[in-house]
Write a protein that binds this DNA or RNA. Structure first.
Lengths: 346, 346
DNA sequence: CTGAAAGCGCTTACAG
DNA sequence: CTGAAAGCGCTTACAG
């Protein structure tokens, strides 16, 4: 290392000027090396890279961002009542971004706020975000997606069904998982199968319900209107909906809930109603949350690879992201996990 | 709005130069207004603020950061196996930061990695972080704290006990919550009380255990060595530890677990052992996680105000943070929540 | 393939 | 109380 380094306070990081001087080239050439320009002689590139290594030089993202008119920040904009979803997506995104030089900035929002679009415009413009990830249900907001296109910010929407061009969409095919649940229950001989869905303001609920009905149809069954309840994706709403179902003269022998929170509510309701799971009623959830295996009996549920989804979204947006050895299909498949909460009818 | 604005592409944001020109002052004066310098004539300030309002001008954080040699990013560095902790802290931090102009950058780490310090130095220096929040157990790393002091980055450590100067510490007094649990069980007449603690590498486990033993002592009880098990803060370790306790000749009549995950494992073990909660064994957890009220019977547990803790840490670090009307004591108190999993002995 | 000049949008000294 | 100059650490045209 050069001893004549002037600003070597130890505390001060090296700049592009230091590297240029030590390598005996212009800062522009160093800049070309940083940005992997092909117009640098191999010899020059190596010399510059060597100096960068020796000095531990790392380009300043703020200065780069200012000149580029674009930051190295990826935004995660979420409004999911389920913390497990957010944290899993976040973790996956960070998996993909690790070592890429990009950072993740998180922003919870209220998707029903009248100020949502104005806030998002301000956020994206002010931070000059490099890209944005929109998990559901924020991903379902067409106006938000339109805004991001207008602002020319790359984004990926994570959703239950294709809502956008393939490059901007990571699809989880929620309906297919629900169809698996329907087939599973039909295979066990159930015919009086109830459904507790989520709010219709969640596309996931709509898609899961649709998939469930398709699965039933395959088995020659239909969803009876009196067995179709609408919950709020919350534990309490699951309890209440199940109590209503259990009060029916012709009780269902199986209940499919469009998320695990509500399915957990069914466990509580069954206990109150004096019904055994699965002997008296089979229960299937959706999410395969940690609680599924902590309940008794362990709950059959549909698993969504949330962390993978976050990682894949990150890989779609971030250059130099760590990539798994997998095809770059922009989709994942839900998977039914059969446990003790479902059994043969009667 | 001035019609003669040259760069009004609509798509382009206004800069400090636009504001200066429109207000008929130098950009330096605009800068003073932005930074709330007292050396600006009230009249001038008002005129500048008015132009800023009209044009919707917002200073560019990257440019400001470059000139300031400091970004407007707050880092959240975490390594907590419990996602609920992270998401709650994160949410609280964001509550405090909302509208402050600062953004939250999240960084999961492996606190046992030999590269931790080097990675953190790089992270903090490269991003020129404005401040850093360290939840436990990362907060317990003295070398990391020393590094941050060396780098001159403000930080707040969130931990079970005071580990640093008051201005750098948010204390949750975990031991006090454990003492409440001990008193509660003693009040119910229990004397053979077991403890399932977490790994001693977690300060929270040490403090909770200590508080628990102090609480027992107050009631004239002591923790019998054969009733003291060490778990891993995981569900499975709770199951195993409880099975060992249940196999004892002199079974405990109550078990206190240092987190809810392990306490949930006790429920499972009790079922396997054919023991009823609370008739045969009382159970107390720690965290008051969502699962506490979804189990049957609902679990008595010690609650920690995680979101508040995140918010308070944010308030300690971020200027202009939204502040609750509360004293700025840098501490919170755990609170025992009594439910159906604890009952009188015998 | 390489570089000198100008600029990204701000703030820090320094003057007055 | 206010401003002209220089600079933060990079990149974009523009030359050669």
């Amino acid at each position: 290392m050069a001893a004549r380094d002037p600003g070597s306070d130890k505390t001060k990081r090296h700049t592009i000027n230091d590297v240029a001087r030590l390598a005996g080239v212009s800062k522009k050439t160093v800049s070309r090396v940083i940005n992997e320009s092909p117009f640098v002689k191999e010899e020059t590139r190596k010399a510059v890279l060597e100096i960068m290594r020796e000095t531990g030089y790392v380009p300043d993202p703020q200065a780069r961002g200012l000149a580029f008119r674009r930051s190295f920040l990826v935004g995660l904009i979420y409004d999911n009542p389920n913390p497990q979803h957010t944290i899993s997506h976040q973790q996956g995104l960070l998996d993909a971004m690790a070592g890429s030089g990009f950072e993740l900035v998180v922003r919870p929002v209220d998707r029903n706020s009248p100020r949502l679009l104005a806030d998002m415009r301000d956020f994206v413009e002010r931070q000059k975000l490099f890209a944005v990830v929109l998990p559901s249900p924020v991903s379902e907001d067409e106006k938000l997606a339109a805004l991001l296109r207008e602002l020319d910010v790359p984004y990926v929407r994570i959703g239950s069904v294709a809502l956008d061009e393939p490059d901007r969409m990571l699809v989880s095919h929620d309906g297919r998982g629900a169809a698996q649940a329907a087939r599973h229950l039909a295979d066990l001989g159930h015919t009086r199968i109830a459904l507790i869905s989520g709010p219709p303001t969640f596309r996931s609920s709509i898609e899961r319900k649709k998939g469930f009905e398709e699965g039933l149809a395959e088995a020659g069954l239909t969803l009876s209107p009196d067995l179709a309840k609408i919950g709020a994706y919350t534990y309490e709403s699951g309890v209440n909906a199940a109590l209503e179902l259990f009060a029916l003269e012709a009780r269902p022998t199986a209940i499919f809930c469009l998320n695990d929170e509500m399915a957990t509510g069914v466990y509580t309701a069954a206990r109150e109603a004096g019904l055994r799971i699965p002997e008296d009623v089979s229960v299937v959830g959706y999410d395969d949350a940690p609680i599924a295996v902590r309940l008794w009996p362990p709950m059959t549920s549909v698993r969504l690879p949330l962390r993978d989804m976050g990682r894949m979204a990150g890989e779609m947006l971030v250059p130099n992201a760590l990539r798994e050895k997998r095809a770059d299909a922009h989709e994942v498949q839900p998977q039914l996990v059969v446990r003790g909460s479902t059994g043969k009818v009667g």
